[in-house]
């Protein structure tokens, strides 16, 4: 099984492509939106992962 980061990256990639084509028109707008969504998902997931260190396992 691929590692978690690879799967998360693939998932973020698919979501970003999907919404870029669903909501935006034109190459430039789509690229911009793709990177925004992709970046937000990746950075957000890593940030949330780090925040979880403050919540120890029961």
């Amino acid at each position: 099984m691929p590692d978690h980061l690879t799967l998360m990256t693939l998932h973020a990639l698919l979501i970003a492509v999907y919404f870029a084509f669903l909501w935006k028109h034109g190459r430039r707008e789509r690229w911009l939106y793709f990177w925004k969504v992709f970046g937000a998902l990746m950075v957000g997931a890593v940030a949330l992962g780090w925040l979880m260190y403050f919540f120890p396992r029961p």
């Binding site: 099984m1 799967l7 693939l10 698919l14 492509v17 999907y18 084509f21 669903l22």
Partner: peptide
Amino acid sequence: LRAAVFFTVIMVAFVVGILL
């Protein structure tokens, strides 16, 4: 174009989900 992109994205997600 959008049809091809949507088909590809959804099918890739579905197949990966099954493989996992």
